[in-house]
C-alpha cells in the first residue's frame, strides 16, 4: 500500500501578501496520489485548487506566493519543497508535467511546434536532436494529430484550440512523467472537443501508467475521469473520498449543495437548489468553519473552532462537525 504512494502532500499552506493583507489561498491541505490513479480536485474559482498545483511545482513564488514552513510535498518519498531551483528544473517536465487551462497561451507563438517539443525532450531525456525529433513525431501521432511530420513544422497559430491542447499533452507526456497535473485541461474547449481530449487522456494514462491530478470546476468531468476526489472551498479541503462515495453519498453540506445546484441532463427539475450567499472574503480571517455562513446545518460550535478533516469508517474524510460521532466510532474500532 505505502509503496503505491507517488505523491504525498501534507499540511500545505500557501499565502499571498497583498496591499490589502494576507490571503491564505491554500490553508492546510493534505492528500496523497497513488501510482496510476486520477485524483480530481474540484472547487469553485478562488478555492485554491490551482495554487495547490503551482505549489507542488514550486512555481508560486513567481506570483508573490509563499509556501509556509511545516508544509511538505514528497514525490516518491523525496521532499520537493527544500530543493533548489536547479533541482526543481529537473523535476518539472521530467517527473511532474503540467497541462494548463489555456491552450492559446501555453505555447510560444514565435517557435514551431518542433522546436518547442524537441527542446523539452533533449533537455530531459538527454538524447540527440534527431532522436528527439522522431520521439516528437511519434507523440504527435499518439495524441491524434493527422500528418504529424507536416504539422510539426507549423506554428501554434496554425492549429485549432483542440489541436493545440493535443500538442501540449504530447509535450507533457513525451518525457514519461510519473505525475501529470492537468489544470482545467478542457475548460477552454467546446464540448465535442472536450470529449475528444478526455478520451485521449484516459487512453494515454493507461499506456504510460502516469498518475494524474485533474483540477476542474466541472463535476461532470471528474465523475468521468477521477478515482478519488478532493473537494476544496476557500483554501481548505472539505471532503475527500472515492468518486463513488462523493457522488452517491456526499457528506459535507457544501458538496451536497454543489451537486444539487447543477442542472442535470438526465432529469428535469422545476427549480435548482441554490447555495445562498457568496464565497467568503479570504482577506478577513475566518473563525471556525469556512462554509458556516452559507450552511443550512450551521450550529454555534461551527463558529468557535475549525473542524478537522475527520476520518470516517469507509475511509472517506470530511471536515464537518456533523460527522464527529461517526468519526469517533471509527477511531474506537
Amino acid at each position: 500500500m505505502e509503496d503505491n504512494v507517488l505523491l504525498q502532500v501534507s499540511h500545505l499552506r500557501t499565502q499571498f501578501e497583498t496591499k490589502e493583507g494576507i490571503i491564505p489561498a491554500v490553508d492546510d491541505i493534505s492528500f496523497t496520489v497513488e501510482r496510476g490513479q486520477v485524483l480530481g480536485i474540484v472547487g469553485e474559482s478562488g478555492c485554491g485548487k490551482s495554487v495547490t498545483s503551482m505549489s507542488i511545482l514550486k512555481l508560486i513564488e513567481k506570483y508573490n506566493g509563499r509556501i509556509l514552513a511545516g508544509s511538505s510535498v514528497k514525490l516518491e518519498g523525496r521532499e520537493l519543497l527544500g530543493l533548489s531551483e536547479a533541482e526543481m528544473c529537473n523535476i518539472r517536465g521530467r517527473e511532474i508535467a503540467m497541462i494548463f487551462q489555456d491552450p492559446m497561451t501555453s505555447l510560444n507563438p514565435v517557435f514551431t511546434i518542433e522546436r518547442q517539443m524537441v527542446e523539452t525532450i533533449v533537455r530531459h531525456k538527454k538524447i540527440g536532436r534527431k532522436a528527439a525529433h522522431s520521439t516528437a513525431v511519434e507523440w504527435l501521432a499518439k495524441v491524434g494529430i493527422p500528418e504529424p511530420e507536416k504539422r510539426i513544422k507549423e506554428y501554434p497559430h496554425q492549429l485549432s484550440g483542440g489541436m493545440r491542447q493535443r500538442v501540449i499533452i504530447a509535450i507533457a507526456l513525451s518525457c514519461d512523467p510519473k505525475l501529470l497535473i492537468a489544470d482545467e485541461p478542457t475548460t477552454a474547449l467546446d464540448v465535442t472537443i472536450q470529449a475528444q481530449i478526455l478520451d485521449l487522456l484516459r487512453k494515454l494514462k493507461d499506456e504510460v501508467n502516469a498518475a494524474i491530478i485533474l483540477i476542474t470546476h466541472d463535476m461532470g468531468v471528474v465523475a468521468e475521469m477521477a478515482d478519488h476526489i478532493l473537494v476544496m472551498y476557500a483554501g481548505r479541503a472539505l471532503e475527500y473520498g472515492t468518486k463513488q462515495q462523493i457522488f452517491r453519498n456526499p457528506r459535507h453540506p457544501y458538496t451536497k449543495g454543489l451537486l444539487a445546484s447543477i442542472p442535470r441532463m438526465d432529469r428535469q427539475e422545476e427549480r435548482l437548489f441554490s447555495i445562498e450567499g457568496n464565497v467568503p472574503n479570504l482577506l478577513k480571517p475566518v473563525e471556525g468553519c469556512v462554509f458556516r455562513e452559507r450552511c443550512g446545518y450551521a450550529r454555534e460550535a461551527c463558529g468557535s473552532c475549525r473542524p478537522e478533516l475527520l476520518s470516517l469508517p469507509d475511509e472517506s474524510r470530511v471536515s464537518c462537525l456533523l460527522y464527529e460521532k461517526e468519526a469517533k466510532e471509527s477511531a474506537h474500532e
Partner: peptide, 12 residues
C-alpha cells in the same frame, strides 16, 4: 453527438 459529449455528474 453534442448531447452524448456532455459529462454527467453521476457515477452510476
Amino acid at each position: 453527438a453534442l448531447l452524448s459529449a456532455i459529462p454527467i455528474p453521476d457515477t452510476d
